[in-house]
């Protein structure tokens, strides 16, 4: 029996795009295109197994070895800091991590800055580097609401097109870091399934270079 390479894909549009890249790399698994609620798809002939997981969980599956490789956003990698290999920038799912506030916001440096975010670690390290004293308000969604209701002064969040911000009369104050999807690998799997992982990596690399 062939050894299986376990691949964790992020559920959603990005994941589908990524699967197409894997398919082009010669690691197809036709059953994945069937419209059903299954979570695991296998192609035993090639020796590959895909599964859909919540995008923010991909890094955990890979770090703990349940998946050998996976695709995760840089935001998740920065926030969670998993002990993995980050092999490739896939140049898709591009956006940025940014600080935003109400358009009439004035930054009073004499006060502690209240920051609402899903990404507490990213926000902390950004403001620590600036030497700014902050208070983190950890929210799980609708971050844009926080400054409008006066819950926070600013937000640290992912900005894609900026439409949501604009519609809520918020604007970007500073960009923290550009975000895109990354190919990640478990450190132990990288040794034991090296050939397959290198093959995928090289093909994905060619594909990303073609699109640039």
């Amino acid at each position: 029996m062939k050894t299986m390479l376990n691949v964790a894909l992020p559920k959603g549009r990005l994941g589908e795009k990524v699967y197409t890249m894997f398919e082009k790399a010669g690691f197809e698994c036709p059953s994945i295109r069937e419209n059903n609620r299954k979570l695991i798809f296998e192609n035993p002939e090639i020796g590959v197994r895909y599964f859909w997981v919540k995008p923010s969980d991909v890094a955990i599956y890979v770090e703990r070895g349940a998946a050998d490789i996976g695709v995760a956003g840089k935001d998740i990698l920065l926030e969670y800091g998993p002990d993995i290999y980050e092999l490739l920038d896939l140049n898709i799912g591009k956006c940025k991590m940014a600080v935003a506030a109400k358009s009439d916001f004035y930054d009073d440096h004499q006060k502690t800055l209240r920051v609402a975010t899903k990404f507490a670690n990213i926000a902390k390290s950004y403001y620590t580097a600036l030497g700014r004293d902050i208070d983190i308000i950890h929210l799980n969604g609708s971050i844009e609401l926080a400054p409008i209701l006066g819950l926070s002064d600013v937000i640290v969040d992912i900005v894609e097109t900026g439409t949501t911000l604009k519609e809520n009369h918020l604007e970007v104050l500073a960009s923290i870091v550009p975000i895109s999807a990354r190919l990640i690998a478990n450190k132990s799997s990288f040794k034991f399934k090296n050939e397959k992982i290198e093959e995928i990596m090289q093909s994905l690399k060619r594909q990303t270079e073609e699109t640039v």
Binding site: E63, R64, G65, D83, N186, K187, S188, S189, F192
Partner: peptide, 9 residues
């Protein structure tokens, strides 16, 4: 050192 089946060194 790594052994197969354990995700970390």
């Amino acid at each position: 050192g790594f052994v197969e089946g354990i995700p970390t060194g």
